[in-house]
Design a binder for these strands. Structure first.
Length: 420
RNA sequence: GCCGGGGUGGGGUAGUGGCAUCCUUGGGGACUGUGGAUCCCUUGACCCGGGUUCGAUUCCCGGUCCCGGCCCCA
């Protein structure tokens, strides 16, 4: 037997009902914020991703040569594709440009809880502006997606890369050393940074300042411990705008430094504390396209949500309930009622109900059992006596209550019942 | 890449160096139209490869996959 590849999953109908429900809630949030959906290819020239994220990521990508000897990669993320799409076809669109996407991504990693080799992301990019209210808008959308999905327990942390970046560039004149220092900060490798400070005889005071800034976490008032600068003012404005949106439980976290050569300003992460080691469900920030592909600077802010982790976090809070897979299951009581049953099920379907009918010529008893296990809300029993009066017996599978209704009224009766 | 714990029918399990247990699910039948029952029949499993052995599902080694963690996380 051929096994499913490591780190991939099959999703059955019950699971997909939950996934689609959650995904749809997040799409709705994007639409409410005026974002339009885009779809980009599942594979791209691998260069697209190495340009954005560096050569080192090749190890963790699914890279292959196609029959034309082009080096391709299954997308490890979708932002790069959206940027490519924007530059090639949408750069003349009115700004701001609001785009979102949903899709599968691939990374060659070791699977564990909330980490798969094929996983699903929903993300949004707001292109063409860099105001604090732009960043706030994106954070607000991120929160709306999670709230819309039903998630309650999560923590939003917002930082600003410019604070550490400008400090290092200002205080360390040697550009090579400064870049090296930033790389270590990016990895949060404080030991190596300290060693380098010793080796290069850089001031200990600066090292302490860097680590203390990276340590700033908590309410927005923590910013008062820093000297005012453009980045701190920007951060404050983001928090102010979020408050106007009714969002006041975000934290400042200047320790968010990952992706330093990519992000340029505000960065943010959202964790679901109930998850284990892999508790980050969302990450994002602002960046400039020009630094990736050259050309005119275009400012953007975006984020990506790990849909799989949102699902996991949701189910740790409470079961995800979905609509019954079937509204009605039509059962002929006897064989000579079968033909009549098809007319009934066809009418129910044309009324937009999820309706099914016995295809296995089973007995009434076995059909009732099937209707129950198939999750039907109602059994529509078609019998001789009812048929004579152009009616059916409608059985509520939850309560067991039955009533005789006119054939024309079945759909209406079901739609009137609770849970419709 | 590394570490730990696991793989017995579709799901859940028992167990053993020699016939693989039970429950559930699936399919069929009986039962004159409510039996979502009951009874009967039936499909279906020891992850893969090598070793030890007369004989391995069981013991040993390797692999693979799953679960969790480290590293990493664009």
């Amino acid at each position: 037997m051929i096994q499913r590849p490591r780190g991939t999953r099959d999703f059955g109908p019950a699971e997909m009902a939950k996934r689609r429900k959650v995904e749809q809630a997040m799409r709705d949030a994007c639409a409410r914020f005026g974002f339009g959906e885009v779809v980009t290819p599942t594979f791209e020239h691998s260069e697209l991703f190495t340009l954005r994220s560096g050569q080192s990521i090749v190890d963790e990508m699914y890279v292959f040569r196609d029959k034309g000897d082009r080096e391709m990669a299954l997308r490890p993320e979708i932002t790069a594709s959206v940027i490519r799409f924007y530059i090639s076809d949408m750069s003349m669109h009115p700004k701001p440009l609001k785009l979102f996407y949903v899709g599968n991504c691939f990374r060659y990693e070791n699977p564990q809880s909330g980490r798969y080799r094929e996983f699903f992301q929903l993300g949004a990019e707001l292109i063409g502006t860099k105001t604090p209210e732009t960043d706030a808008e994106v954070v607000a959308l991120a929160i709306s997606c999670l709230r819309g999905a039903g998630l309650e327990d999560f923590l939003v942390r917002i930082g600003h890369i410019g604070i550490l970046k400008s400090l290092v560039r200002k205080e360390i004149k040697d550009e090579v050393v400064a870049a090296e220092a930033l790389r270590m900060i990016d990895k949060e490798d404080w030991d190596s940074l300290g060693d380098m400070f010793d080796a290069k005889a850089l001031p200990r005071k600066l090292f302490d300042k860097i680590t203390s800034i990276a340590d700033i976490k908590g309410s927005v008032d923590e910013l008062n411990n820093l000297e005012d600068s453009e980045p701190t003012a920007h951060l404050r404005e983001i928090f102010d705008t979020l408050r106007l949106y009714g969002i006041d439980d975000c934290q400042v976290d200047l320790g968010i430094v990952r992706g330093l050569d990519y992000y340029t300003g505000m960065v943010f992460e959202i964790d679901a504390p109930r998850l284990g080691a892999e508790k980050q469900v969302l990450g994002g920030g602002s960046y400039t396209l020009s630094e990736l592909f050259g050309g005119e600077p275009v400012f953007s802010t975006g984020f990506a949500i790990g849909i799989d982790r949102v699902l996991l976090a949701l189910e740790k809070e409470r079961p995800i309930d979905v609509r019954a897979p079937l509204d009605a299951y039509v059962i002929p009581a006897k064989d000579d009622m079968r033909k009549y049953a098809f007319g009934i099920v066809a009418r129910l379907r044309s009324q937009g109900l999820k309706a099914d009918v016995d295809l296995m010529r089973r007995t009434l008893s076995k059909n009732l059992k099937y209707a129950f296990s198939a999750g039907a809300r109602f059994a529509v029993i078609v019998g001789k006596e009812e048929m004579a009066k152009r009616s059916v017996t409608l059985r509520d599978m939850k309560t067991g209550k039955q009533e005789v209704v006119q054939a024309d009224e079945i759909g209406k009766t079901i739609l009137r019942s609770p849970d419709s």
